[in-house]
């Protein structure tokens, strides 16, 4: 009994010292008595050899076929999952309220108030603009924050690291993992042609038009379809076209990483502060000093116009930033 306990303890101790399997699946090999007849050893060895080959063969088989079988299983399961989900959803869709019917549950008192009182409550002619920037402004603030989060994250991943790449690799790396990423393929750099006359001519004509269009869409966001998000996307295409026609250096002169960060953060900050004021006054039933204006005028809709401009700045900068970071690795 005492011997057995000692054996278990030794096995456990060995495991703790890092040279044995874990105790729960530990099989303690019976120690061969020292006076064992020599003739019995080959037999013992034979069984061990046999076991080893079986295990080896299993491992070999697993190495060759394991991935294949896993792939088949995975494909089958995925297809099954997709079929099940699609058929479930089709069954759901068949039961949903009919398409385009005016008595559907979604057309309720909430919508009636948005349409009937939206005009004089928010001052916006475009009901959707009033909805997203006044009634449900917190959602839209969150949405701009999503874009901000993504911009910051992409900048972190692509911006800083690649610029530092040259100097980190010339230094002896402290982390062993860095040593292994040296064999990375070189980044494909944008080949910029200086003699592309057609592109430049078209760009010089269209960039002002695109910029104007973008500004119109942003500024008229509360009167007509459009707003900060769509207008900002249009503005960013002008920047991208400029970068392609005249080179990223030209855009750099007035829009680099620093200006991007400053403009996005400032615009979002203005958004946060002005909307924070409006949330605060609304919740505490304090009269807000922001005038609503007359519907249909360019200066109407309370905060909607400035908010659209802020959002337009954020979106334009972020989308151009994505383009520049992905194609050049720099802004």
């Amino acid at each position: 009994m005492n011997e057995e306990l000692k054996n278990i303890w030794r096995a456990f101790f060995n495991w703790v010292m890092g040279n044995g399997p874990r105790p729960e699946n530990e099989v303690i090999p019976p120690e061969p008595p020292p006076d064992l007849p020599f003739t019995q050893k080959p037999h013992d060895k034979y069984t061990r050899f046999h076991e080893a080959t079986l295990k080896e063969r299993y491992n070999q088989w697993l190495e060759i076929h394991g991935l294949h079988i896993f792939a088949i299983l995975y494909t089958g399961l995925s297809v099954l999952t997709c079929i099940v989900i699609v058929s479930l959803l089709l069954a759901t869709v068949a039961e949903l309220p009919p398409f385009g019917h005016e008595r559907n549950p979604a057309n309720n008192e909430v919508i009636r108030r948005y349409v009937e009182h939206g005009g004089h409550e928010t001052g916006a002619q475009n009901i959707v603009a009033g909805l997203i920037l006044d009634y449900r402004a917190f959602d839209t603030f969150g949405e701009s924050a999503v874009l901000f989060t993504a911009a910051v994250s992409v900048l972190m991943l692509l911006g800083a690291s690649r610029r530092n790449k040259t100097d980190t690799h010339s230094l002896p790396s402290s982390n062993a993992m860095d040593a292994y990423s040296i064999h990375a393929p070189p980044m494909r750099h944008h080949t910029f042609r200086k003699d592309d006359v057609i592109l430049r001519a078209v760009a010089s004509l269209s960039i002002p038009v695109i910029l104007m269009m973008g500004c119109v869409v942003v500024i008229n966001g509360h009167l007509s379809p459009g707003g900060g998000f769509s207008g900002g996307a249009i503005l960013s295409t002008a920047l991208i076209l400029c970068a392609n026609a005249y080179g990223f250096e030209r855009v750099h002169e007035f829009f680099n990483e620093r200006t991007f960060i400053v403009s996005s953060s400032t615009a979002l900050m203005i958004y946060a502060l002005s909307k924070g004021y409006s949330f605060f006054t609304g919740a505490n039933h304090i009269h807000s000093v922001i005038p609503k204006g007359t519907i249909g005028n360019i200066l109407s809709g309370g905060l909607i116009l400035p908010l659209n401009i802020c959002v337009g700045l954020i979106v334009a900068g972020t989308l151009y930033g994505f383009y520049a970071l992905f194609s050049e690795g720099d802004m």
């Binding site: 917190f138 959602d139 999503v146 989060t149 994250s153 991943l157 982390n175 860095d178 990423s181």
Partner: peptide
């Protein structure tokens, strides 16, 4: 509000993945 929850779930997702990737390395 359920939709506000969705928007902030997305912020949470991107930020959570980004703080994993903030440490350099493949």
């Amino acid at each position: 509000d359920l939709f506000t929850a969705y928007v902030f779930i997305e912020i949470n997702t991107i930020a959570a993945c980004a703080i994993v990737a903030v440490k350099e390395g493949a």
